[in-house]
Design a protein around this nucleic acid. Structure first.
Length: 198
DNA sequence: TTCATTTGACCCAG
DNA sequence: CTGGGTCAAATGAA
């Protein structure tokens, strides 16, 4: 009830500061997923780059804004906000916004980094066209989907509600990048449904 | 040196 | 106007 994953579909606020006449609110649907943990998610399997830090009025703590480290190279729109929402038992809420499209490219086409002459592959449109086929799409060539299907099965059956933070705080994208995070397959807390559903 | 983080300014939506 | 999100120059670290 608290760390509920809420999806919001709104216009692209990314570089909308230049264009004030941006009315296309159906262009991009950015999903947000909040995840609380006793400690800030230092490394959730991705490389983040901090690009901002603001003090939220509603809270006494500051909110840090991260972006995918490869956002520039791979046009990855994945972002995450991190803010401490509680003090006594330190609770950090990490909100993920957008999806990672860079890591997939890294696996499938590592040489693309060299030939960065122009954008040859555009995954932007695939984002919204991928309602629930995110997982299978992560299998580039030799992906072993054994862990995936197993996790999916657990997600369907196990509907335990974990309200404690005593579990690993970085099991968010375990099914997204199984081979990327070896120690992630510990537990599924809240994503009983596909979070990438739009 | 390069690169990532810091920090205030800037911008936009409500 | 206020609050929240991003940019970008300055700073620090490797």
């Amino acid at each position: 009830m608290f760390h509920g994953a809420d999806k919001s579909c709104k216009a692209t606020p990314g570089t909308a500061r230049k264009s004030s006449k941006n009315n296309s609110n159906e262009e991009e649907c950015l999903e947000q997923y909040s995840h609380d943990s006793p400690t800030p998610l230092l490394n959730d399997g991705f490389s983040w780059r901090k690009y901002g830090q603001k003090k939220i009025k509603a809270s006494s703590h500051q909110r840090c804004y991260y972006r995918c480290a490869y956002a520039k190279d791979r046009n990855c729109n994945a972002k995450k906000r991190e803010q401490q929402i509680q003090d006594s038992p330190s609770v950090y809420r990490t909100t993920y916004v957008g999806k990672h499209i860079c890591d997939v490219n890294v696996f499938s086409e590592p040489d693309d980094d060299i030939a960065n002459g122009s954008k040859m592959i555009r995954f932007d449109k695939m984002d919204q066209a991928m309602p629930d086929s995110v997982m299978p799409r992560l299998a580039p060539v030799e992906q072993q989907a054994i862990t995936i299907e197993e996790d999916t099965d657990q997600i369907m059956n196990l509907e335990f509600d974990i309200n404690e933070f005593l579990v690993d705080d970085d099991q968010l994208w375990e099914y997204q990048f199984p081979s990327f995070s070896p120690g992630f397959l510990d537990d599924l807390s809240e994503f009983d449904h596909n979070p990438f559903l739009v």
